[in-house]
Design a protein around this nucleic acid. Structure first.
Lengths: 350, 350
DNA sequence: TTGTATGCGTTATCAA
DNA sequence: TTGATAACGCATACAA
């Protein structure tokens, strides 16, 4: 008796639009109109249907909706990033932007070193038929990936450290300017031998931050040997190792700007290993203002970028093409990072 | 005829099961069988259809699938962000468990202090008709929430610090045992005046960890004044404040066990503020093994729980009821935390 | 082994 | 302002 399964299932599962229609004595389409706030509808009819919806606790099935509309309401977040706090802040920002909409967020961490990267992303997008995706750095710097996403008919917004794309496809911070100000601050304190630990080769954020560093020195007419710039990998360990190199120089730098907080924490760690006073014998500036920056001793002076706001903006930008959301089309794409002054910088003791 | 509209639309959108059926000269159902790996199917037919699927890049529409099956493939992660790294590790673990399945993960941060908490969770689950959810601590300790989720016909797995629920509904670490061992380690080093900074009132994890602390002292026959136990809030600042209190005692503790790493970092910070040597004058043990624990100086001895593995197990447990996944029904629910010995503990100098 | 008819819950078309 | 009917893409029951 296969028909047995149906009533049972009906009882256990949620009410559908048919139930509402039947119970309130109207057609499905009318219920649909009520749900979608169509204007041409009799207020009485509307009230009746709304009452029934409230009574039964009816919730439209998004799957069926997606099927009928030929589109869905899923936003993907694609990232490959070691910085947990940034991703979480970004998630928070995106969800804030999606709040009170019917969109939901799907998270997809990927491995940017994997040869199957493109395939992974393609499968993710086409399987779920995503409405759009937000791509986080450093993945966002990959132009081919952005093209792939677009070719799949999927909207996208990239988050980056510079203008990587059209305004409607990017939210960007002004890393270069922010770093220039940070290094200028070191110079104002009297530092001249300022070292720099860069981000990994090929990262746009690393390039921008290094340029900011170089600009600040150039403007002040300061020349430092190329050996004052050491490559890092955005990891704590690479920060430690790079610092070892810098401190082996003679004379060593009196200050170090590390391209992110993880490495800046490594600088502090390496300084301690050598018994150096921070900031007395070595001043440090990081980038990101992750929690770690304020947890170490001394707390790190660092650059903070408004990640949550950028996430919110990215989400709004993505759904901007929706009807009735023309306002979101004017979402800002450029965000200003600021220097947070804490205890890891002072004048050079020498 | 109305069928004219189809080719036009067809060209722009993705191929459907109908296209595959038509192109390979079989019925939809046969294609469906190929997709779902039915056994009763002619190898030649199968090959033909599979070739066509590969050629066209056809991907089944999960929305339609969900509709037809009367269920969907969405797993929710509900949390109230205490700790970015933990949540990200958990996400990673869940996604590992979901890899190569058709399930996807939806993330939902909520505010556990909000009066609309239950309503939020209910809307999330019923709107998306989630297959199941993973609930992270401290939210997972709320029995009423779990009951609500279940009443919505949604599967759930709670992650916790103790056995909060049936084995099929929980993945738990043995916080009490792990802490007991940690404090025993302090005792073995010669400490007798051991302070404890607890987690917030009412948190199961806080209770378990405090019990572990008390058990270790009891077993060693050590009595400490109640004032050696100070309430914290799992935050850095609360760790700093609690440490101030403890260090104001006379005699002060020679070691402090903080119920999480954030607070342990606060202990370290407060010790530095007073110019105390760590570990020389004050030994510290934390809990979580977050990145911060290894970034500060000295790196913190702490308790590590296998969050990624727990996440993976939670995901597998959730989808265990699926056909052909009976193996997953035996997913472990109890996970062992271990003490990670680093540089923040030594014998008391006195 | 394969095909036909039907249903899942929603929206769109077009007529009433 | 409303409703009947046909999609949307896929899966199941049942028949061939």
């Amino acid at each position: 008796m296969p028909s047995q399964s149906k009533p049972a299932k009906r009882a256990a599962s949620k009410p559908t639009i048919n139930d509402i229609a039947r119970l309130s004595g109207v057609s499905k389409k009318t219920v649909s109109r009520v749900i979608n706030r169509a204007d041409s509808i009799n207020p009485q009819t509307r009230a009746k249907v709304e009452a029934m919806i409230a009574e039964t606790g009816y919730v439209p099935n998004p799957q069926a909706r997606a099927l009928a509309l030929g589109r869905n309401f899923l936003i993907g977040l694609i990232h490959d990033n070691p910085n947990a706090q940034m991703i979480l802040n970004m998630q928070q920002g995106i969800l804030e932007g999606l709040r009170d909409t019917e969109f939901e967020m799907l998270v997809r961490p990927v491995d940017r070193t994997s040869p199957a990267l493109f395939e992974d992303v393609e499968r993710f997008i086409s399987r779920q038929r995503l409405f759009g995706v937000v791509i986080l750095p450093p993945l966002s710097e990959n132009d081919k990936l952005a093209k792939l996403v677009e070719s799949l008919g999927c909207r996208y917004v990239r988050m980056g450290s510079a203008e990587l794309d059209d305004p409607q496809h990017i939210v960007a911070s002004n890393d270069r300017d922010a770093v220039r100000e940070a290094v200028q601050y070191l110079i104002e304190q009297g530092h001249r031998r300022i070292g720099h630990i860069t981000g990994p080769n090929g990262f746009r954020s690393a390039i921008e931050r290094q340029k900011g560093y170089e600009e600040a020195l150039a403007r002040a007419g300061i020349k430092v040997p190329q050996s004052m710039v050491v490559a890092g990998e955005y990891t704590f360990d690479s920060g430690v190792r790079a610092t070892e190199k810098l401190l082996d120089m003679s004379p060593p730098p009196t200050a170090i700007f590390a391209a992110n907080d993880e490495m800046a924490a490594g600088v502090l760690f390496a300084a301690r290993l050598r018994g150096l006073q921070v900031p007395g014998q070595l001043s440090i500036i990081g980038f990101d203002d992750t929690p770690i920056a304020s947890r170490v001793w001394p707390p790190l002076t660092t650059v903070r970028w408004p990640i949550v706001a950028m996430g919110r903006s990215a989400a709004l930008k993505l759904i901007a093409s929706e009807a009735g959301r023309a306002d979101a089309a004017e979402e800002p794409w450029r965000f200003v990072s600021t220097l947070i002054r804490r205890g890891s910088v002072t004048s050079p003791s020498a």
